[in-house]
Design a protein around this nucleic acid. Sequence first.
DNA 1: ATGTAC
Length: 470
Amino acid sequence: MELVEERPYRFRIDPHDGMRVPGVVFASRDLLSDAEQSLEQVANVATLPGIVSASYAMPDIHWGYGFPIGGVAATAVDAGGVVSPGGVGFDISCGVRLLAADCDRQGLRGMLPAIMDGLGRRIPRGAGPGGVWRLSGQEELERILRGGSRYAVEQGHGEERDLTRCEDGGAVADADVTQVSERARERGLVQVGSLGSANHFLEVQEVAEVYDEPVATAFGLARGQVCVMIHCGSRGLGHQICTDHVRLMDRAMNRYGITVPDRQLACTPVDSPEGRAYLGAMAAAANYGRANRQLLSDAARGVFRRVAGVRLSLVYDVSHNLAKMETHTVDGTPRLLCVHRKGATRAFPPGHPELPEDLRDFGQPVLIPGTMGTASYVLAGVPVGDAFHSACHGAGRTLSRHRAARTVTGRELRARLERAGIAVRPKSWRGLAEETPEAYKDVSAVVAATEAAGLSRTVARLVPLGVVKG
DNA sequence: ATGTAC
């Protein structure tokens, strides 16, 4: 794949083989050293009907189902633009939530082990069923699919600020529960309030460094402060919805005269029965994901309150696997776009009307979870931005799970982390080993590239004190 | 990511 360096941290793939727009990759050569397959995917995405501006990739790009993870693609609804489940990913509404404690590390004194033990007992994790919330039945599940974290808060599992500081106020209105299959519902019923496995986690962190004092203060963050970061998604429900609708679109594509270079790019027009069906089901999964993170927050709050008398306030909650209808100016004209962000975080600029009032002057918090045992970052959306106001979403995997697990055993890794002062409460040794830091790019380099490319500005760096893993 | 396969 030929990359033209337009300027530092911005590369272009010129249109070829049916690409309707160029590819644009924000990264350093170093970060792209093993990216040939995923760059191929960037080019494939550029062939989709209705795509505008470019097929974008963030610095943490790596290979994914159809679309690369770290990909951003927007299609114009009035130009037959398509929506593709592969552009969102299997874990619909996977995202990150950051809570700030009303104490610093010293304030916890010797209570961290007890907090970690409490979280270890209280936070459901790993594959399969099990969540903190036992639902009364399908009707209550539907209330979650429609109401997201708003419903969870109404039921007493949170506070008003949890909604104002959550993307979309905690819920989107366009969920269509009739497009969520029986199987997806069955899986979803028993997993509300659970982390899942793989790279999902709940971490107790400390703000190690503040790079932008005024913005950090507005976000509610200060050096030394204890935080809780939750990274998880919509579990089996989102996975099943993706599976169901990929199949439907794969069968329907012909009828719309759409051909794609890879079947995993299955798509139909946004403005088609299949497109609307997917977007309605996806919105339901988005609400489920927010409710999931809300209930885990509630559970973590209970542990912090009981063990240490500490309060946790929501800084922000943002998804990095979602397609959203947004209006953006393309070639001087405002257009309604379906913006796919897959492993990419929305990063609205200062002044954006959808930001909560107390954050509006500062830009949207962009939450970047790091690799286990390394740093995580908080960034902020910038006035100009790029890629429809998007940023990276994490470190980006480089080793397969299998290869990662061959480099270290879970027990060895836990001992290493504990020696570094990081408490670990794993569910499975194998799962822990698969998440070893060596399997990922350096999140600091990814964040530096994101800032240097002009996608966001760095606000704070957080380091783990304890990690709860699936 | 995922009851790590239809």
